[in-house]
Nucleic acid binder design. Structure first.
Lengths: 233, 233
DNA sequence: AAGTGGTCTAGACCACTTG
DNA sequence: AAGTGGTCTAGACCACTTG
């Protein structure tokens, strides 16, 4: 199928709203009007309105109609930045220590996340990122070996895996999970923590047009690192 | 209309998953099977599966089938969501227990954050939000008394402070800081934690057109709550 | 080839809001 | 009474996955 009809209608409405041709709270054409205009069934017009409503762009009331919702209620500005840039911007020194870099059999969960066949090989890297020689992040990364065949040949003390991967397979999508955890003994050692303090753990799945590129687990001591997000409505 | 047929099917599937009768990644009956079993059209069965997929309970692959998704408490950093809505969307019960609600002299840091004169009064509320009677969040909030004079008269077991504040002074901006911390003894007691496990702490500053409305500190046990964010580029 | 989900149609009846 | 969104049907064709 070339392109779904409801997608065309969605794009049309979205364009109207983004160009301010339809203001906030303005009335949007009804299901019947859209069906007529786009020469589709009412169910297809409805699908477009429904999708945009769930997306937060429209709001609907039975008997009344469909209206443009208040804009930008959800704007993503959780920045998870390249750690090297972030440290340099603070005027500090960034060092990356490569703890390990090898090909391994994919752990089950990783294999599933990377959409690999069972027992496939993946590349695994483990780095400690330091700010002025103090460990700030432990980066455990699993990389799709099919998509990034030369991963093991890189020198990640010079260029972070994130930067390298962005060059090889530009990101189209990222998912983050943020948790508070107790670090393992091994993690404490690498992060030079003697008190098992709580850590932020960010699990990041990155996608490019060709597939799932990598899964990274980033562990940061709670006392040394925090995330910030800023939302404007 | 008494109750929508697709709601009945959704409830049936949700019950199967919550009772662990259907495990993670288990195959869910196909649209055709459900249509036959519930004596509805395929479109109606589809609607139930579709809703639960968007809700994150199921995942679907064309040609393969529909499966139980991995369950875990999830949220989004991108949206400022109401915790009550979030819990209800999972089909669970939300309870809010008001621990305290009073006027106090602003602690220095809070006074500065709220842009008040020294020694000004602020309203302080402390709530525990539960999901099916299990504490999920401890909410400590300081509110600008000049902007929200009737804060103390509200019943926050019925309406969350966030919802009330949004009505009084619509948000224009929010800042979040996300950290991993060790909970204090008092926090452990309120959250019914016996192991001092790491907690996510989200500090949220909210702004409206008229000024800084409130500063909230939200503490969530790491084992019960995590944040998720999704970025499309 | 058979089963799956994805899209789509042309109808239907309903509950709700407005004039 | 006319228009709106909400639910539902019984079909159809398609793309995708598996044996």
């Amino acid at each position: 199928m070339a392109e779904a009809k409801f997608e065309v209608i969605k794009r049309h409405i979205t364009a109207k709203i983004e160009s301010k041709a339809w203001a906030e709270n303005a009335k949007v054409p009804s299901e019947n009007e859209l069906a007529l205009k786009f020469n589709v069934s009412r169910m297809t017009a409805r699908r477009a309105l429904q999708d945009l409503t769930e997306q937060g762009l429209l709001k609907r009331t039975q008997g009344l109609g469909t209206f443009v919702a208040c804009l930008k209620t959800q704007s993503s500005v959780l920045k998870i930045r390249n750690i090297a840039d972030e440290i340099q911007q603070r005027g500090h020194q960034h060092q990356a220590h490569v703890i390990s870099l090898s090909a391994i059999k994919a752990p089950t969960a990783i294999g599933i996340a990377l959409e690999l066949t069972p027992n496939a090989q993946v590349f695994h890297s483990q780095l400690v990122h330091c700010e002025n020689d103090i460990p700030l992040q432990l980066e455990d990364r699993y990389v799709n070996a099919l998509l990034v065949p030369k991963y093991l040949e890189q020198d990640f003390s010079q260029m972070t895996p994130h930067v390298y991967l962005s060059q090889i397979a530009p990101l189209t999508e990222a998912r983050h999970t943020i948790e508070a955890i107790s670090p393992s003994e091994a993690q404490c050692k690498l992060l030079q923590l003697d008190n098992f303090e709580p850590c932020l753990q960010i699990t990041r799945h990155t996608y490019s047009a060709v597939g799932v590129v990598s899964v990274a687990r980033i562990t940061c001591p709670g006392s040394r690192y925090r995330l910030e997000s800023h939302i404007t409505i």
